[in-house]
Design a protein around this nucleic acid. Sequence first.
DNA 1: AAAGCGCACAACCGCAGCCTG
DNA 2: ACAGGCTGCGGTTGTGCGCTT
Length: 213
Amino acid sequence: MDKKPCKSQDVEVRKGPWTMEEDLILINYIATHGEGVWNNLARAAGLKRTGKSCRLRWLNYLRPDVRRGNITPEEQLLIMELHAKWGNRWSKIAKHLPGRTDNEIKNYWRTRIQKHINKQAEAFSFHISTPELLDHHASTSQLPCNGSTSFMETYSPMSSFNHCNLEPFPGQQQEVQQQQQLQPQQQHIVDQPNNESYWSMEDFWSMQLLNGD
DNA sequence: AAAGCGCACAACCGCAGCCTG
DNA sequence: ACAGGCTGCGGTTGTGCGCTT
């Protein structure tokens, strides 16, 4: 799908992780010229990237209003509600979560919520196949709610989800621990009061200073 | 201490729709 | 009306890192 960025001159296209230098070039360029046609921007800024790649990097990572770090329980609930309503319309869902990107929400859904749901579905089918265990599990069941409802009913926020306790998923506690163990430089990026995490231009610049660039 | 494993996330890919000449 | 280019979106993959054994 991505054609060569320029027909007249076969410029090599870089792929893979963005370097700090590339980030800086992109930030500087957009700061002075603003966003525009991404293919032109990539060329004009001297980045050996496709416009598409620049756009993605900017929207998902470099934009100053991008909010990074833990998804809060409130956001988690909202994601589940909106997903139940709209399905995998990530960009639509993202519009209702200021500072969150569709990519972030999509990743969050796939790695945390979907896995959580799958586990519960497995547990549910296990219950079905082993009815003799129902009594034992009645008090300690990991099922979110009512064990006699279908799984999708269980998941749907419009039905029984609202009655369930919104506990952090297993990964979330781990995340908190991980964040506490982050390198000082990383901590500067992600740690903010109230568990709010932002990546700002100031952060970027101060990192540049730290790195002696 | 080191190897293997699993998780989380950044980035890429392909497609569809829109816009413009 | 049509073709080419650009953007946006959703799905998928690659990789780095932490945890476990």
